[in-house]
Every structure is written in structure tokens, then in C-alpha cells.
Design a protein around this nucleic acid. Structure first.
Length: 430
RNA sequence: GUGGCCAUAGUGUAGCGGCAACACUGGAGCUUGUGGAGCUCUCAUCACGGGUUCGAAUCCCGUUGGCCACCCCA
């Protein structure tokens, strides 16, 4: 190996051929489930105005505060590599007047997102998400349906040991009261919590709730809970959501401390986890596969008419690693026929024959770069084909071709112009 | 952003201051038109840059990258 000059930048990685089959099946499942639920694909730019996220996602959130990639264009605009999808799609909804479409409008998308973080397994600076959003329907049925979809996709991917955590964080009516109650509770305890949380009490008190420090968890166990402060509307909505989930046989955990890191959420929030290594006590813990919730206030914040909305993002990289951990890879389809050639004339003729097989939709492998028959048969063997066609100088002269059955080594000679038909028969006979 | 561990062939590893090794994979071949076994040969100046030393894969510093724990989430 010569000296390597370049490697991927921190947190960026290549997706190699060996993973592509997994990714395709993940996307296929996600798209077919979404299509079934009436979702349509939308794609938005990877670059947007940085302000879109500052305003929507929230300036004090980690995503915007310290994880966003921003850049200044030659024209002087401040753009950001999208760190999440929701603001883009909301922006697009408003920009194209989709509130004039029959509601609800159901959209999905997927693609790369960018967050500047210290990478670990399943945590990258360029990450991939599958994302769905529903606009124009305030019913808790939608929230439940989103969770149902999320679970359906994972189930279709044969993932087990899935856990759904749900909570309601209220809305602009009730959350301020809760915040106030929480702050006054925490203020007395500020020396009993960790230093980060002491800061959070001022900046984002809700975040103290999902701190992992033991002392903070003790504090929070006595803390007032959002659920007791929900206004009637939010309470009804949450109750309704849980009824839908029960009715749909969707198991969930209530997590009164689940808040999620984004500013725009109202009412429902949820996160979905997969057990890291089911049945293996050596490796504990859960992998967050994605999360979402309702954000009824975001449209108005962006200057649009008030429109209820909800959605979720699913981390494709994480689902990929969960799929790889939990289930076996599906057999990649490989060619069943190999075309070997011997001599210049035969090599030239095999070009044409190869194309005839393509037109007949029969997948054939070759190794035109190799000259010795021995090497070509070794290659055919490695590929695990059932038959090898041998086109040599003799065959070229009398317009025939040899068909070799790899298992038994039996061979027969057929007319060259009947080769495709003969192979069809062989394949069908299987 | 903080702290820690790590980097040798495509992959997985050995080497612990004195000629870079093993397994698998890949490539060429084993008398020229026949694969699966076996055999031969072949693929690394040890991530990069600097320093210490007669001598560095090995020790030190820096850079880059990976992983882990925080943080946070996907």
C-alpha cells in the first residue's frame, strides 16, 4: 500500500457494498410501509438558511448551539447543512402552499443529515435518517399511527426487543406553569444536582429531568411531573393517544421524564429503542433508533397559518446496526450462469452472447480479463453458479457452445444460437 | 466540548529497542481446453509527521482517524 494521503474526515464514513443490501432493504421496507399509510416522498435541499433551524429547532438546543455545520456563501448568505428534517419539510409545506391540499398532508423523506459531534459507533457527523411528517391533523390518532408505523417498519425488518417510550410535554398553555413549578423546585436543590444541571436550571430546566447522574435522578424522583400540570386539552389528547396505543396493541412505556432536545415539540413526544444485544448479558443497554412527536406551534413560528403537525425521524445507521446485530443478512441474488471463453475469436463472440443474455433477463457472470480456462472455471466455482458456458476456438468454428453442469461436471454441446433457450430451460427446470 | 483506550497486508492478529510473522482473502501459476483438494510464488518500507537512539513497528511529542465513557441523541 502506498502512503495514504486521505481518509474520511472525522465522523464521516463510506457505505461499502457489503452494507448496501441492508440499506436497500431498510429503505424498501420504510417506503412500502409509508406508502401503505398514504405518505408521499418529498426531497428538500441539504443546505438551508441557518436561521430556519435557529428559529425552529431552537437556539438553545444542542443541535443548533453546538452541532450545526454552517457556512457563508460567496453571496454572503448564512446557510447550514441540515441537522434534521422537520424544519425543511415545514418550510416546504408553507412555501408551496400545501395547506391548500386536502388535509392531512403526509410526507416522508430520507437522506444525509449533519451534526458536529464526537463520533462513536452509530453516532456520526454525517448520519442518515428516514423521516415522516403529517400536517393538518391534530388528532391523537395521528400520533398513535406514527408510532404504529415506526414499529411496523422495525417489525418488518425482523427486529425484536423494541421499546417505545412516550410522554406529553404540554403546550404553550400549560408548559410555562410546569416550568415555573419545576424551577422553583429545583432552585432549592441546585447544590444537590450536578454542575451541568445547575446550568440547565437556568437555560433549559426540562433537561434536568433526563440527566443520567444518580444524584440528579434522585432529585427528579421528587420533582413535579408535567403530567400533573397538563391543561385539559393536553390531558385529553394524551389520554386519547394512550387509548389508541392500547387499542392497537402497541406496547409502550410511560416516561414522565422524556422531554427531547428540540424546542418545537408540543404534547406528544416519543422515542424508540432497540435492545443492544438481546439475550447477551455481557452487553447491556439500548440503542435509540429514533424519535418524534407533535409540534403544533412550528407553522405559526415560521409565519404560516396555525397547522397541527407531527412526525418522527428514524436513524437509518442505527437501524442498520440493529439489523446486523439481530438478524441474518438476506441472501444476495447472484448469477446462476458463467460464461467462459477461450481464444480471441471466442472472446469477441462472447461479448455479443453476453448481451443476448442480458436482453433475455438472465444474469450471467464472466471474466473476460482472464484467459486460462482453468482460472475462469475457478472463478465460476467461487461464484457458485450452476452452469458454465464454455465458448472456445473449436466451438466458434462450428457455431456451438458447451454447457457444463458444475455440480456433476457433465457437459453437453448445443448450437450457439440456441444457447439462450437452452439456458432458460435449465434455469426453469430448477 | 471533556476524559480514556487504540492504529502492523484487503480482513483478523503476532512481534514489546536489533533482518516484519501467521491465518484467511485477493492475484499469478502448478506444461499450454476444464473448477471444487493440494502445492509454489506474490501483495505492508508497521496511519502520517517529527524527536530520542549506533539502531524504532516497538520509547517520546504532534497530527489524522477509530472506539469507549461523559454530553447528547439518530
Amino acid at each position: 500500500m502506498a502512503k495514504l494521503k486521505f481518509q474520511t474526515p472525522t465522523g464521516m464514513h463510506d457505505i461499502l457494498p457489503e452494507d448496501q443490501a441492508y440499506l436497500r432493504s431498510i429503505m424498501k421496507v420504510a417506503e412500502s410501509v409509508s406508502a401503505f399509510y398514504g405518505f408521499q416522498r418529498i426531497d428538500t435541499p441539504i443546505l438551508e438558511n441557518a436561521e430556519l433551524y435557529e428559529k425552529g429547532t431552537g437556539v438553545s438546543t444542542d443541535i443548533v448551539e453546538k452541532q450545526m455545520y454552517t457556512l457563508k456563501t460567496r453571496g454572503g448568505d448564512l446557510l447550514a447543512l441540515r441537522p434534521e428534517f422537520t424544519p425543511n419539510i415545514v418550510r416546504s409545506f408553507l412555501q408551496h402552499g400545501m395547506y391548500n391540499l386536502p388535509q392531512p398532508v403526509k410526507l416522508y423523506t430520507s437522506g444525509p443529515l449533519f451534526r458536529y459531534e464526537r463520533p462513536q459507533e452509530g453516532r456520526y457527523r454525517q448520519l442518515h435518517q428516514f423521516d415522516v411528517e403529517v400536517f393538518g391533523d391534530q388528532s391523537a390518532a395521528i400520533d398513535a399511527q406514527l408510532i404504529q408505523m415506526f414499529v411496523a417498519i422495525l417489525k418488518d425488518l425482523k427486529l425484536s426487543h423494541i421499546i417505545v417510550e412516550v410522554n406529553s410535554i404540554g403546550d404553550s398553555q400549560c408548559r410555562p406553569y410546569y416550568k415555573k413549578a419545576l424551577i422553583s423546585y429545583l432552585k432549592n436543590k441546585q447544590y444537590a444536582v450536578c454542575t451541568d444541571c445547575r446550568r440547565r436550571i437556568k437555560t433549559n430546566p426540562l433537561r434536568v429531568l433526563d440527566c443520567k447522574e444518580e444524584k440528579c435522578q434522585q432529585i427528579r424522583s421528587q420533582a413535579p411531573q408535567m403530567i400533573d400540570y397538563l391543561c385539559q386539552e393536553c390531558k385529553d389528547h394524551f389520554k386519547s393517544l394512550l387509548e389508541f396505543l392500547d387499542e392497537a396493541d402497541l406496547p409502550y412505556h410511560l416516561d414522565p421524564y422524556l422531554v427531547r432536545g428540540l424546542d418545537y415539540y408540543t404534547k406528544t413526544v416519543f422515542e424508540v429503542f432497540a435492545e443492544r444485544s438481546p439475550g447477551n448479558p455481557d452487553e447491556k443497554g439500548f440503542l435509540a433508533l429514533g424519535g418524534g412527536g407533535r409540534y403544533d406551534g412550528l407553522m405559526k413560528l415560521y409565519g404560516g397559518r396555525e397547522t397541527p403537525a407531527a412526525g418522527f425521524g428514524m436513524g437509518i445507521d442505527r437501524v442498520l446496526s440493529a439489523v446486523k446485530r439481530q438478524s441474518l443478512p438476506s441472501e444476495p441474488s447472484s448469477p446462476k450462469i458463467f460464461l467462459a471463453q477461450l481464444g480471441d475469436q471466442a472472446k469477441k463472440k462472447s461479448m455479443k452472447l453476453f448481451e443476448e443474455f442480458r436482453k433475455a433477463n438472465i444474469s450471467v457472470a464472466e471474466s473476460l480479463g482472464r484467459d486460462s480456462l482453468r482460472a475462469q472455471l475457478a472463478r465460476a466455482d467461487k461464484l457458485g453458479v450452476s452452469h458454465t458456458l464454455i465458448l472456445g476456438q473449436r466451438e466458434v468454428l462450428d457455431n456451438s457452445i458447451v454447457i457444463r453442469t458444475m455440480g456433476s461436471g457433465a457437459q453437453k454441446t448445443v448450437k450457439l444460437n440456441e444457447a439462450v433457450e437452452e439456458v432458460k430451460k435449465l434455469i426453469r427446470g430448477k
